[in-house]
Design a protein around this nucleic acid. Structure first.
Lengths: 122, 122
DNA sequence: GCGTATTGACTACATTTGTAGTCGATGTGG
DNA sequence: CCACATCGACTACAAATGTAGTCAATACGC
């Protein structure tokens, strides 16, 4: 089982979920730039992700192509569970209630959620 | 602004939100036992929370009574925001969609969420 | 009063995380 | 062919985190 990725590592992993494979340079341009990290930092993050088994490499000439080795959905599931447990005692609706209260929900969000719920009930 | 509490520290803080004030012993019995931590560990966590300004102490004879110094709602708000940003690019509905898919939503949850949304729209 | 249990203060230390530098190998443009 | 750019490997190192031990003071039961 792959170990958990740290928050920074998760940024890199997220970029790979969005688009893969990518080279270290590409990732530096995207994630690095977005977070103010140098290439060196991004490479360290990549190395750690590989070591944790969360990312795989494929040689492409002199460099590597990086690909996620774990599914976004699985990771998101684990993290969501941990999160809801940690802050909301495992209950989901308090989370929604909270998000709603903080006005973190746009009208579009609300519409989408309602549509989801309708589908869930059918 | 108080610094963020780590995950372990959050466990202790959570217990204080549920019930406060509490002594270190009480917290060890609850949180410590639940997590397999010794008294020493719980005390360290408490000391760090105090140092971070997340918990206050009040002398009670030879010992302290511990109380949360930051509101659950505020912390939950910050953490939720970070979480949604980190895993869902800041969008809330993918989170709901995910929870729904994983059947993490009970019928009660669904009903509660619908009620919330109705209220939101009015 | 005195031994014993309890408590906070202080110390300890390995691991993880954030952030980056260096360096040797190798590919590339001219 | 060769200077230069680029890449991964390895190294560095401070701060945060997880986990706990030790110790001196003190309160409490007898």
């Amino acid at each position: 089982m792959a170990e958990r990725a740290s928050e920074s590592e998760m940024q890199v992993l997220g970029a790979l979920w969005d688009d893969s494979p990518q080279t270290a340079s590409e990732l530096t341009s995207r994630v690095g730039a977005a977070n103010g990290w140098t290439q060196a930092t991004v490479k360290t993050l990549l190395a750690r992700l590989v070591q944790k088994g969360a990312v795989t490499t494929e040689a492409d000439g002199r460099r590597y192509l990086y690909r996620p080795a774990i599914a976004r959905a699985d990771t998101v599931a684990d993290e969501s569970q941990r999160f809801v447990d940690r802050l909301f005692g495992g209950r989901v609706s308090p989370l929604i209630a909270h998000l709603a209260e903080r006005e973190a929900l746009t009208d579009t969000d609300i519409a989408e959620i309602e549509a989801l719920l309708r589908k869930l009930k059918s």
